[in-house]
Design a protein around this nucleic acid. Structure first.
Lengths: 129, 129
DNA sequence: ACTATTGTACTAGATGAATAGTACAATGTC
DNA sequence: GACATTGTACTATTCATCTAGTACAATAGT
């Protein structure tokens, strides 16, 4: 069974709320095949202890993941990666997105731009002339 | 005197606060030479009426622009674009940044990604493995 | 059946930020 | 010098949103 699983790392300074970081990292782990269908996610309580945050915050993340069909939850037994968490069409799209975001972030960081500013630039950009 | 000046357009749905949109758009107008050194910006009150927002919101934007040396304010007469709002080294950098942001936004929009999501992806991206 | 373990629901606190309200100060104009 | 016009300062309200607290419900294991 090896080192299958998620290694969640929260960054309070990132500007992204915890629950959203969790979602993103789990999604990413699935795309990277570090999590596969059927794998069990850490229990809400276990994570809540490990990350030192409230159970509800993780619950919120898991709930959204379930809504998107990425995980399935079974009260009493846990939360599991769905059979087909991401269909292959979507998967390819996500891979492309990830690739572009990575390129962009790297480029911008080389220009000395921090994440927050990148985000602001993206939000405020207008094509107009 | 022509059509020199700014055409500010606020978008409440953009996720960026008004005062920041104002800053960004004025900066952009300067880079695009639609505003030049010495040009007078709309008065706080005039904008407050036109945009239907509180004077203080514009004041906040102008204050930050002044702090950055981009504009100069004279109580009684108004707010003006500084002599050298942006030095040429910085200008080139900003142009490059703008270009990359534009490319990125366009790419992502073609993939069906909205601004908010782009911002979240940027904030949460991790190079790790 | 019992008990522990899992997720769930609901409420409330806390925080932070953006914007608004209102009154003030300085300068320009006549 | 009076008055209008400009920016400024300070406070407070609104608002959203995340996170925490706490108690509940369902399932699994024995």
């Amino acid at each position: 069974m090896s080192d299958r699983g998620v290694e969640l790392r929260l960054d309070a300074a990132s500007g992204l709320p915890f629950y959203r970081q969790i979602i993103q990292q789990i999604e990413h782990a699935i795309l990277a095949r570090r999590l596969e269908p059927g794998d069990r996610l850490p229990t809400i309580r276990a994570l809540s202890v490990e990350l030192r945050i409230n159970p509800n915050t993780i619950q919120k993340a898991y709930a959204e993941l379930e809504l998107r069909g990425i995980v399935t939850t079974q009260v009493g037994s846990g939360t599991f990666v769905s059979d087909t968490p991401i269909d292959s069409a979507e998967e390819e799209l996500l891979a492309r997105i990830d690739e572009r975001v990575g390129r962009f972030v790297k480029d911008m960081e080389e220009l000395g731009i921090g994440r927050e500013r990148m985000a602001a630039l993206v939000l405020g950009f207008r094509e107009d002339r």
